[in-house]
């Protein structure tokens, strides 16, 4: 677990409970986590500091997950992204290739799968 301690994960969701859910699990495995409540705040953080992974919701006020990823990529940030959403949300927003996220996970996130996926990506 120690080897994960230098890795920073940014968790973006408009629900504090969902942020806490992910944070709690991910921290158990030694990663550092930070959170943002919408895409705009997340983008600010991503531009200011270095993260190794982005986990984002789709439906959010101000800037949604799709716009966030598009902006992230436009700014040349090439970190892996996990999109957490319902099947329908994902389909309606991400069936194209432009903002292609690294991976999609279905809400509610399966903790074990989340960690396994993070391990794959980092």
């Amino acid at each position: 677990m120690k080897q994960n301690s230098g890795k920073r994960v940014l968790i973006v969701d408009d629900s504090e409970m969902v942020r806490n859910f992910h944070s709690y699990i991910i921290r158990m495995f030694g990663y550092q986590t930070e959170t943002a409540e919408n895409g705009a705040i997340a983008l600010e953080k991503l531009l200011a500091e270095e993260y190794q992974l982005l986990i984002t919701d789709i439906n959010m006020p101000k800037m949604d997950g799709y716009e966030l990823i598009r902006n992230v990529r436009e700014n040349g940030i090439s970190i892996p992204v996990i999109v957490v959403s319902t099947e329908e949300e994902y389909r309606s927003r991400f069936s194209g290739v432009e903002a292609g996220p690294s991976l999609h996970m279905v809400k509610p996130t399966d903790p074990e799968k989340l960690i396994t996926t993070i391990k794959m990506l980092l």
Partner: peptide, 21 residues
């Protein structure tokens, strides 16, 4: 460690953590 995530103990702790929110 991953297995921990499937235990009832972990779940109930997490539930406690999230309840207020």
């Amino acid at each position: 460690e991953l297995g921990l995530l499937q235990t009832e103990e972990f779940k109930s702790k997490l539930a406690e953590e999230l309840k207020e929110q």
